[in-house]
């Protein structure tokens, strides 16, 4: 379910970005709405890609929902403020950490703030959400089973005079698929 939602969000955000580009061909150039389309579409694209990569079958994204929501929100807010706040860059304006307000929002809010959240969340949830030794062992076993299946197909082909002694990637048979699935302990689609 989590992955389906992420895929729907990814497709939707791609459409939004495409629509933003499309408005640029209108007479008079891109309207302000084009910037807003990108400001919403880009964070949605990035967060949905991260969810797609982090979600595990039956577990969703778990505690990662919070950092993803925070970073998605920070990107939308940062781009939104840059678009919505009045352009007041001029000599003598107050500076925030050495920059005018809107530039500070972009450089510090979008360029630096996510660093304090996302890589740390990735490291802290790595063994539960991303990869464990047990996962690696299962994958190794599945790979070995796949290689055995390929070898048996290749020897059967060469015994039967198969062309060039090579095997097409598509030539794995249904019964071998079953054997590999059993070896991998793979989960259903």
């Amino acid at each position: 379910m989590t992955r389906r939602l992420a895929l729907a969000a990814l497709a939707g955000s791609a459409l939004l970005i495409a629509a933003s580009y499309a408005t640029a061909v209108l007479p008079g150039g891109a309207p302000p709405a084009a910037g807003w389309g990108m400001a919403l579409g880009i964070p949605a694209t990035l967060v949905s890609l991260m969810i797609l990569g982090a979600a595990r079958p039956g577990q969703g994204i778990g505690r990662l929902a919070w950092p993803f929501a925070f970073v998605g929100g920070a990107l939308v807010l940062g781009f939104g403020l840059a678009l919505a706040l009045p352009a007041d860059e001029a000599a003598g304006v107050p500076l925030y950490l050495g920059l005018p307000l809107r530039a500070a929002v972009i450089l510090y809010g979008i360029g630096l703030m996510p660093i304090a959240v996302l890589p740390v969340a990735y490291a802290l949830t790595f063994s539960t959400q991303t990869l464990s030794q047990a996962d690696i062992d299962r994958v190794r076993l599945a790979g070995e089973a796949w290689a055995r299946g390929r070898a048996s197909v290749a020897s059967a082909d060469s015994a039967g005079g198969g062309a060039h002694g090579s095997v097409s990637v598509d030539s794995t048979t249904a019964s071998q698929d079953d054997e590999l699935a059993a070896a991998a302990g793979t989960v259903g689609r």
């Binding site: 991260m50 990569g53 972009i106 360029g111 630096l112 890589p119 990735y122 796949w146």
Partner: peptide
């Protein structure tokens, strides 16, 4: 600016799967 997000996004989306494909 995307560097604040892209490295970790790449890790979630591709790093594990590419490395495991290399393993398998």
């Amino acid at each position: 600016l995307p560097a604040s997000v892209t490295n970790v996004m790449g890790a979630w989306v591709l790093a594990k799967r590419m490395r495991l494909l290399g393993e398998a």
